[in-house]
């Protein structure tokens, strides 16, 4: 122990070496700068959607992937908001849960007013876009791509995309992630441009979406054949179907694919 009046009571340098001051300031000292999300962790794959003459159909599977590990198999990625809107979310699942809470709060706040002014798809989309753009501008993005679907102020079908950068666009067919490569070409055969929407009925739209979910399961390694599907029309409001299975799968082609695994030939 030091006996120097100025250093009295301290461990002696001779015995213990010089005191490391950073120990005393351990709490305040940051060895690492503040970090924001730099990559998604648990992820959901594509969301796909299409307009038809009376409304929209949207679907997303129930898988939460941890890298290439199929980690969670019962994740719901479609969120109805209000009477005539739905938000489908792909990308980081923890950010998805945060966004879903924002949407819940939004609906509750709106219901407090109770003044006959309902939250519709365009309003929800605008709000989400502001949230995403604001977060990307803080360099702390919410790592998602989302599709907002429903009916607009005049009761017409509404479909619009927004992602982690705040980029937004609308089209009669939309898909996030892998769906943009695998599903969109199929959906665009059904509805190429806005004026085709009038010609398509609910049945056709649903079948197209189901076909796409199957194709996605065939070719997207981070997908599941269990999915949710929502149909929104003025007449029936939000119709939520959960736990759908991709039917009539055919894996006969698989036996012809060679060059991997334990095959001998």
């Amino acid at each position: 122990m030091e006996h120097d009046p100025f250093r009295w009571g301290r461990p002696s340098d001779q015995a213990y070496g010089e005191y490391n001051n950073s120990i005393a300031h351990a709490g305040q000292q940051q060895s690492f700068p503040k970090m924001n999300t730099q990559q998604p962790i648990v992820t959901g794959t594509s969301v796909i959607a299409i307009k038809f003459k009376d409304g929209i159909v949207i679907a997303a599977d129930n898988l939460g992937s941890y890298g290439s590990l199929a980690r969670f198999t019962d994740v719901e990625r479609l969120f109805p908001v209000g009477d005539h809107a739905v938000v489908g979310i792909s990308g980081d699942i923890s950010d998805l849960q945060y966004v879903s809470r924002l949407l819940e709060d939004l609906e509750i706040e709106n219901n407090y007013d109770y003044d006959g002014h309902s939250l519709r798809a365009p309003h929800i989309h605008e709000y989400l876009q502001k949230v995403f753009y604001h977060r990307r501008s803080k360099m702390d993005p919410l790592w998602n791509s989302t599709i907002v679907g429903g009916l607009d102020d005049s009761g017409k079908p509404f479909l619009k995309y927004v992602d982690l950068l705040g980029v937004q666009y609308s089209a009669p067919t939309l898909a996030t992630g892998f769906g943009a490569y695998l599903a969109l070409p199929i959906l665009r055969k059904v509805v190429f441009e806005e004026k085709d929407v009038e010609k398509i009925d609910e049945e056709t739209a649903r079948n197209a979406i189901k076909e796409c979910m199957k194709v996605l399961f065939y070719r997207d390694a981070r997908s599941l054949d269990k999915y949710s599907l929502i149909t929104i029309t003025k007449k029936n409001g939000v119709v939520f179907e959960k736990g759908l299975k991709s039917e009539e799968q055919s894996w006969r082609f698989a036996k012809d694919i060679k060059g991997y695994g334990t095959q001998k030939v």
Binding site: D113, H117, P122, H123, E126, K130
Partner: peptide, 15 residues
């Protein structure tokens, strides 16, 4: 208008 792309309702304004 900016955040929700809808006009402020009269009742909300009064409240």
């Amino acid at each position: 208008k900016m955040i929700f792309n809808r006009p402020l309702s009269t009742e909300k304004a009064a409240t």
